[in-house]
């Protein structure tokens, strides 16, 4: 009995990995790209390209495990990238600009959480509204155009070749790795993490067990907002300008990554490791398809198929 339970949990853990390995295998066997695909330089680029979606997915994983959704993630990223650009442009020291971006991202998330719990409306509606509000605010602040900002060390966070070369990866990638480990620990080992799972699995039970469900949800959305703020900083770092029209539709990529990684939209299931694998499956696919010279629409079709297949497989596995 015990052995088979352990085996099942091992398979559960491995399943998203298998998808990742499959993607890597397919492209490394393609004669056209095989020589370039697995090169360190390429993988480094993929890692850097993944940072923004990955940071968003760290927060989204918590939100989705709690049974919610955050549609305002991408708008929040655009909004904070504009904030950081405006701050740098105004001569504010980069550290403070970053802090302002992250804090305002958190504020948007906090607002989501407060509205969801106080108005007792579903997260889909509140964050759908916030998606428009944050996007609109970003455009308003930027007078509907890009905000140029002088180069600073912020722009090195996402540099293709890190500044001290011994770093090997861009600072943003390291930040992503450290935060992913931290969030995995938070979800698995802390009281807050247990409360997130309990709220997502059955909110009525959570309330019955004395969990302050409203407070937990507010913290969850605020946390997701902080991650979007950080992703906004990275977006600014990458673009070197504050662009209020950036990242349109990115929230769906973020949600897709979490879902591919085993997150359940009905709550109670999901993991940081799974979501990170989901992020990398999507970026490796994009990267491989581009190398193959396949048009954009092929990538879109493939990713669409993968989302449906991943969730269908997940369902099958849980039924067995």
């Amino acid at each position: 009995m015990k052995r088979s339970a352990r085996l099942t949990s091992l398979i559960n853990l491995m399943a998203p990995f298998l998808g990742l390995i499959l993607v890597v295998l397919i492209f490394s066997l393609m004669p056209e790209v095989q020589s370039r695909f697995l090169r360190a330089g390429n993988l480094k680029a993929v890692a850097t390209q993944s940072v923004i979606v990955a940071l968003g997915a760290l927060g989204m994983t918590v939100v989705i495990i709690s049974g919610g959704i955050d549609l305002s993630a991408a708008s929040n990223i655009a909004f904070t990238s504009v904030i950081v650009a405006a701050a740098v442009n105004a001569g504010i020291p980069p550290v403070l600009a970053i802090l302002a971006g992250v804090a305002l991202g958190g504020l948007i998330g906090l607002t989501n959480g407060l509205l969801i719990t106080k108005l007792k409306l579903v997260p889909f509606i509140i964050t759908l509204g916030m998606m428009g509000i944050a996007r609109g605010l970003a455009k308003w602040l930027a007078h509907n155009q890009k905000i140029d900002a002088p180069l600073s060390w912020i722009n090195e966070l996402m540099a293709k070749t890190p500044h001290p070369p011994w770093l090997l990866l861009a600072p943003g990638v390291w930040l992503m790795i450290v935060l992913a480990i931290a969030m995995a620990v938070v979800l698995r080992k802390t009281v807050f993490g247990r409360h997130v799972f309990a709220v997502g699995s059955n909110e009525a039970t959570a309330r019955l067990c004395g969990i302050r469900t409203d407070r937990t949800k507010i913290m969850i959305y605020a946390l997701a907002g902080l991650f979007c703020g950080l992703a906004g900083v990275m977006e600014f770092s990458r673009l070197t300008v504050g662009d209020p029209t950036v990242a349109v539709g990115l929230e769906l990529d973020i949600i897709a990554a979490v879902v591919i990684g085993g997150g359940s939209l009905s709550g109670g299931a999901g993991s940081i490791l799974g979501s990170m694998i989901g992020v990398f499956i999507m970026s490796l696919l994009r990267n491989g398809c581009t190398m193959m010279g396949w048009p954009n629409y092929i990538q879109e079709i493939i990713i669409g198929v993968i989302i449906v297949a991943a969730v269908a497989l997940d369902r099958l596995r849980h039924r067995a």
Partner: peptide, 13 residues
């Protein structure tokens, strides 16, 4: 519907 979080473990519940 309320008493137990069915998808969580006995330990968690």
């Amino acid at each position: 519907g309320e008493g137990l979080a069915l998808s969580l473990s006995i330990k968690d519940n």
